[in-house]
Amino acid sequence: MQVWNSMTEVPTDLPRTVVALGNFDGVHRGHRAVLRRVVELARAEDAMSVAVTFTPHPRVVHQPDAPHEEILSPEQRAVFLAETGIDALFLQRYTLDFAAQTPEEFVLSLFVRGLRACAVVVGRDVRFGKDNAGDFAEMVRLGREHGFAVAAVDDLPAEDGDGDARRCSSTWIRELLADGEVAQAAHVLGRNHVVAGQVVHGFARGRELGFPTANLQTDVAGMIPADGVYAGWLHDAEGTAWPAAVSIGSNPTFEGVARVVEAHVIDRPVERVEDFDLYGQLVEVEFVARLRGMVAYEGVEKLVAQMHQDVDQARAILDAAPQPPGRA
């Protein structure tokens, strides 16, 4: 997949394109339905398939003081977009000046002159141009006027925890991750949620207690789920997936510890920890299920007993879960 950061990087001999427009945060099931349609249309039209997204997220520009956490880092998003078969990703720099364009100026600069679109694929709830004045009907009208077709992809529903249907959306996924509901988030995403980071030295308390962990740097790529203990997989730099019990939080049993993500590889003998050196490696942590919330225990003995229970529960869940490629 080619990645273009500005119009100056777009090839001068660019063929006709079929374009998908969206933020694509999470690259969830609904997004992939749109992107599959783009790839299909592009092949039928002998054109190039292009996903157009924004950097930074428009909400950050319009509401700079409001909290906003993206599900994926830009690098993660690009990886998952590439897996859809899209030929190219165009990253439109989002500024207040760009946002001030009328709907027609938006279409002309981005789709017509910039990417030579012969077709644009969007959701029926699409909004674009100054003050979000452009909607689906306006996109269709502008397409007729400027020579590109417009195709709509309907919302993709998924069942929530109560069995009710709800539209797959990045907002819903953020809510689920903020509540630690990683299994339900995986249902909406179409895959398990993943964070990535470099393994750094911690306080070595896990090793002292018989549960050595790989501690991720504080600047983790991807939205970190709610504090708690999870069953998941640790993917090392060589692509091996190790079953793991994952802890997120400040570990309230010990005072003065910052919020961290740490993964204990299940059934890795403590005496062999020295031949399992992950320090400095960029690893991924894949979340399968939440085991419990974070609790402060009265004494180390109770904490260790709970950690044994956590590992047993995580092992049972992972033994029954679909096995990732490269499982150790």
Rank of each mutant, 00 (worst) to 15 (best):
M1N: 00
V3G: 09
M7L: 15
T8Y: 07
V10I: 10
T12E: 12
T12R: 11
P15Y: 02
V19G: 01
G22M: 01
G22Q: 01
D25I: 10
D25G: 09
G30D: 01
H31Y: 08
R32I: 09
V39E: 04
E40F: 07
D46T: 12
M48W: 02
T53L: 14
H57R: 02
Q63N: 03
L72V: 08
R77C: 09
V79N: 02
V79Y: 09
A88R: 00
A88E: 01
L89W: 08
R93D: 14
L96T: 15
D97W: 03
P103E: 04
V107M: 03
L108M: 14
R113L: 14
G114S: 10
L115N: 05
L115H: 09
G123D: 09
G123R: 06
R127H: 11
F128S: 09
G129E: 05
A133V: 10
D135E: 14
A137N: 11
E138R: 08
A149Q: 11
A152I: 10
V153R: 04
V153I: 11
D155F: 12
D155H: 05
E159V: 13
A165P: 13
S169P: 05
S170R: 12
I173N: 03
R174V: 11
E175Q: 15
E175M: 06
L176Q: 15
A178H: 07
E181M: 15
V182R: 03
A186Y: 10
V188Q: 06
L189F: 10
V195D: 09
F203R: 13
R205W: 10
G206M: 07
T213W: 04
A214S: 03
N215V: 11
T218Y: 09
T218H: 12
V220C: 11
G222M: 02
D227W: 01
D227Q: 04
G228M: 04
G228E: 04
V229W: 00
W233A: 04
L234I: 08
H235N: 01
E238Y: 11
G239Y: 03
A241G: 12
P243L: 01
A245Y: 01
S250V: 07
N251Y: 08
V261S: 09
V261Q: 03
D267R: 01
P269H: 05
E271M: 10
E271D: 15
D277C: 10
Y279H: 14
G280N: 10
L282N: 13
V285P: 12
F287K: 00
V288W: 03
L291T: 02
G293Q: 05
M294F: 03
M294P: 13
V295M: 11
E298Q: 14
E298P: 13
G299Q: 12
V300Y: 00
E301C: 04
K302N: 14
L303F: 00
A305E: 15
Q306A: 13
H308W: 12
V311G: 02
Q313N: 15
I317K: 03
L318N: 08
D319T: 13
D319Y: 06
A320T: 06
A321W: 05
A321K: 05
P325C: 03
P325W: 02
R327N: 14
